[in-house]
Design a protein around this nucleic acid. Structure first.
Length: 292
DNA sequence: CTCAGCTCCTGCGGGC
DNA sequence: TGCCCGCAGGAGCTGA
């Protein structure tokens, strides 16, 4: 489900229940997600206090009080549902389902990890199990195998037109591929890549090395604004998720091109129709008449 | 090194 | 109604 804005929103959503809290109980219901869970995973979470919550790319990083960091990736379908155990606890049911009913009473299909603090229960659910969890020493977290080669955060100052120009010079692969490549920029996925390219009026098929400096400056700005708006949308609609299904994870976002094949391009005065093509086995949505 | 294609897994919606 | 096919928001791995 999640790209950077959704992961950011999930992290903020679980923060009230986890940050500064002690994990008093932890259980796993299968030994593997995408990869095997660490040895004695539940035991190693149990009793730990969460000192810090952060996001890097699409990973959530929870620093624990024993010097280890709990790393979470939601894959395609991972969700973290939070519910209150104590009637006095703050209700922070981001992505919670059936909050008033039996949800907390027992496990549902594809619930793989559960933990409790004094006041809340948090359940990791992942239908396709492309998600991942790991434990790594906090002092070495940046060199974790999954994080070490990630490119810059798209919302950081280091991600700009000059960076893209340097990184893409001479490259023959497409702009779509470039933005999807986590080593070039970390945290984008299929949806926001399509949206950013539309916003920058650049074709997903354009060879990356052929984009001008000016176009790449526009593109970096488009990436930032698309993500910022999505985070803002997620943050502002956070409360709605208390009783919403996780399927709304993309925040009833009004995508301009994603999923809008054959519908009119929403750009004023364009008049074109959105097309869908396949690139690297993934769908790209774009408007051929205003994106080149 | 570069890049395209395959792969893991499950569920859903559309067409016949 | 039931079956088959294509598709799904990720990303590591393989091999040309």
């Amino acid at each position: 489900m999640p790209e950077l804005p959704e992961v950011e929103t999930v992290m903020r959503g679980i923060s009230p229940a986890l940050l500064g809290r002690r994990i008093v109980r932890a259980e796993t219901y299968r030994a593997d997600l995408r990869w095997p869970l660490p040895d004695r995973f539940a035991d190693r979470l149990q009793g730990r206090r969460v000192l810090d919550l952060a996001r890097r790319s699409k990973y959530i990083l929870a620093a624990l009080d024993d010097g280890w960091t709990w790393l979470i990736h939601l894959g395609m379908t991972g969700r973290l549902a939070v519910g209150a155990l104590d009637a006095t606890a703050e209700a922070v049911g981001v992505f919670a389902r059936d909050p008033g009913g039996g949800r907390l009473g027992g496990l549902g299909p594809h619930d793989h990890v559960m933990l409790e603090t004094a006041e809340h229960r948090l359940i990791y659910n992942d239908v396709r199990r492309f998600g991942a969890m790991d434990l790594a020493p906090t002092s070495e977290i940046a060199s974790h195998k999954l994080l070490a080669r990630l490119g810059p955060e798209p919302l950081s100052d280091g991600f700009d037109g000059a960076y893209l120009a340097a990184r893409l010079a001479g490259r023959i692969f497409s702009l779509k591929s470039a933005l999807m490549d986590q080593k070039i920029v970390a945290g984008l996925g299929n949806i926001y890549v399509c949206e950013a390219l539309w916003r920058a009026r650049l074709s997903p098929e354009k060879p990356a090395g052929q984009a001008s400096r000016r176009q790449l400056a526009m593109l970096s700005k488009a990436v930032k604004s698309v993500l910022e708006e999505a985070i803002e949308s997620g943050g502002s609609s956070l409360r709605d998720y208390r009783q919403a299904d996780g399927a709304l994870g993309y925040f009833q976002h009004n995508f301009k091109v994603y999923g809008r094949e054959q519908r009119p391009c929403p750009r004023r005065g364009c008049g074109g129709d959105v097309r869908r093509i396949q690139q690297q086995g993934r769908s790209s949505f774009f408007c051929p008449s205003c994106q080149s």
